[in-house]
Design a protein around this nucleic acid. Structure first.
Length: 595
RNA sequence: GGUUCCGUAGCUCAGUUGGAUAGAGCAACAGCCUUCUAAGCUGUGGGUCCCGCGUUCGAGUCGCGGCGGAAUCACCA
């Protein structure tokens, strides 16, 4: 549409001013709400060809277009802006085209399909998931849906950080003070039980570190001097050498954690096609590093540690293997990337990882390229912002971590309370209500997080509950439920859509506004796919729902006396509901039929 | 200190490749349910778009310099 219009304008100005005007000077945008018109041509760039005032240039072009194209029904000029009205029949043609689509996701698969891995979640196995992980999971899953819809082969992967000193801390605390406690005996989710021992470890460690602190040691050194810390390190060494007892405990406790994680993932509605474990991938990272050392891409220091020199790329030197031969974080990421390229031959691998690791991924890519892996160009760090509290970062030591399970349950409970206050769903079975409250509570949570530009840090205030009114998930769900209700009622009264009745309608302004928005859906999805931004879809859905609610408020759908109007509004409503449903689906948000 | 990111209404956030008088929601206040779901709709108040300079016909948007905040610069992950 915009392109068709642009083309017509280009031809018009070229013939008016008899010169080869470059295409990029034709700037068409949607007309602002407070002016009359549908699209606006900015005429300033054309003045050097028209050699005339902005006003005169605008009306010359407007007059030409009005005379030569029946798409244009009217125009007006204000300062250097030519506002064009599109004829009703054109809007209706577009509308009819969209109404014939089987579903609103049809026809989005336009660009060349790629194989894309999306890595997200990536938890540590020593504590439960928190709000930061929720943002990560929702973004990753939504990206998967958006990229799939636009025609790519997308593989969801998760890499679990299941080894290292932090895991040993929980293990050691459990061993010392756990008395054989299990998730069953404690009636606690496995990840929370393990997290409890991690916290206990830190608490005991702090106690033990105090005497050292008193001698004037700094915090770090004091903690390292505590016997508990030394025990934890011994345990890590035992784990790395395969000590059966330690490995056994490690397996048991990680198993508890996975059971707990699975429940949280299920609640969030996210899943994975392939899960990697660092305990399995770090070895191949070592091999790759040793190989690269042979090829002299890397170098070895006197203490036998191995390094990459990236100083000529304005990056530092980076350690890849310690002098004792053990791997660091970067090592395993190198290994994992190579394994993934072998297994999937991906075009892109998108890492959904917080912006605190920007440097890490810059280095990761640089090292792989230095090693000669050209596919490393396809590594993309999807760097999202932190979730912060009003007073700053969440800190486990200060107990300000917002737990994922608690938050989810709290949202579902709030949905129930609000529904009760409003006197909704009273005639429903408890089973059905539970399902609806879950959809609404999670809808509110997910939308709250996904509507924000992923790159930016965002604030969550635990003291203020997440809203269910205004620019929220439930607002959009509510709009959807109302439409569904209208359609069902129409069906009961024998009202069915009739495509043949669409041509002779005279749409009202509000209805045209809706058609414009409906038309825009496809562009928004493509834009969100190319910029990796679910937020665009979220904000679009809100805009559409708001526009529809105004229409719904002002006009009757089923009770209008004109059959043509009833039919038209029914189709308009149906399309709106389908697009809201599709849009929210891409955000991983489910829509209730009633609420 | 170096690098990167951020700074828009009291609060949380939008703001397309630079375009007209910078928008929503929350909170506050005032209205609208005998009618398809009021988790809705309408209205009022609320702004030095951090500051300055520059580029441009035109800057919240681009460039430079400040100020403020965050992250990172580990033989942690």
């Amino acid at each position: 549409m915009d392109n068709i219009l642009k083309e017509k304008i280009l031809i018009a100005v070229r013939s008016l001013y008899k010169s080869e005007i470059p295409e990029n000077l034709i700037q068409v945008q949607e007309t602002r709400k407070d002016f009359k018109g549908d699209f606006t041509l900015v005429v300033f760039p054309l003045l050097r060809y028209s050699k005339n005032t902005p006003e005169q240039t605008g009306s010359d072009i407007g007059k030409y277009l009005l005379e030569n194209h029946n798409i244009i029904s009217d125009y007006n000029v204000i300062k250097g802006f030519l506002n064009l009205n599109i004829s009703d029949s054109w809007w209706l043609d577009i509308f009819k085209g969209i109404s014939r689509q089987k579903n609103q996701l049809e026809g989005l698969k336009t660009h060349n399909p790629e194989t894309i891995l999306v890595e997200y979640s990536s938890p540590n196995t020593n504590k439960p998931l928190h709000l930061g992980h929720i943002r990560n999971n929702l973004l990753g899953f939504s990206l998967f849906r958006i990229l799939s819809v636009t025609g790519n082969r997308v593989i969801k992967t998760n890499i679990v950080n299941d080894r290292g000193i932090h895991i040993c801390k929980s293990m050691l605390a459990w061993q010392k003070w756990g008395n054989g406690e299990t998730p069953d005996s404690a009636a606690l989710k496995g990840d929370h039980l393990v997290g409890k021992y991690y916290v206990l470890f830190e608490k005991e460690l702090k106690k033990q570190a105090e005497p050292f602190l008193a001698t004037g040691m700094d915090d770090e050194a004091a903690r390292n001097s505590a016997p508990l810390m030394q025990e934890a390190r011994e345990m890590l060494l035992k784990w790395e050498s395969g000590d059966p007892e330690v490995v056994g405990l490690w397996k048991t406790m990680n198993g508890w954690v996975y059971e707990g994680f699975d429940k949280t993932y299920e609640k969030l509605g996210v899943d994975f096609d392939k899960i990697y474990y660092e305990s399995e991938t770090y070895k191949s990272g070592k091999e790759i590093v040793l190989e690269a050392l042979k090829k002299k891409v890397l170098y070895q220091k006197a203490d036998t540690s191995i390094w990459a020199d990236l100083t000529d790329e304005d990056l530092d030197q980076k350690l890849l293997l310690r002098s004792d031969g053990t791997a660091v974080y970067m090592t395993q990421d190198l290994g994992t990337a190579c394994i993934r390229q072998e297994e999937y031959g991906f075009d892109k691998c998108i890492y959904v990882v917080g912006n605190e690791q920007n440097y890490h991924f810059q280095v990761l890519k640089a090292i792989l390229k230095k090693m000669g892996y050209n596919w490393a160009d396809g590594l993309i760090h999807f760097s999202y912002g932190m979730v912060e509290l009003p007073e700053g970062k969440m800190k486990s030591r200060e107990g300000t971590i917002v737990d994922a399970d608690d938050l989810i349950q709290g949202m579902i409970d709030s949905a129930r309370e609000l529904s009760f206050e409003l006197g909704k769903l009273e005639d429903y079975q408890e089973e059905e209500r539970v399902d609806i409250f879950r959809k609404i509570g999670l809808g509110a949570l997910k939308y709250f997080i996904l509507k924000v530009d992923p790159r930016k840090n965002m604030t969550f205030n635990p003291a203020e509950s997440i809203d269910f009114n205004g620019n929220t998930g439930p607002f959009i769900q509510y709009t959807y439920a109302r439409i569904r209700s209208v359609i069902k009622k129409g069906e009961q009264n024998g009202l069915r859509e009739d495509p043949d009745l669409l041509s002779s309608v005279k749409p009202l302004q509000k209805e045209i506004e809706l058609i414009k928005l409906i038309r825009k859906f496809r562009d928004v999805v493509n834009e969100s796919a190319s910029t990796y931004s679910p937020a665009l879809i979220a904000n679009y859905c809100y805009e559409l729902a708001r526009e529809y609610n105004q229409f719904y408020h002002d006009h009757s759908i089923l009770a209008d006396e004109n059959e043509l109007v009833r039919n038209f509004r029914l189709v308009l409503s149906r399309l709106t509901s389908e697009i809201l449903n599709s849009g929210m689906w891409m955000l991983g948000i489910e829509m209730p039929e009633r609420m």
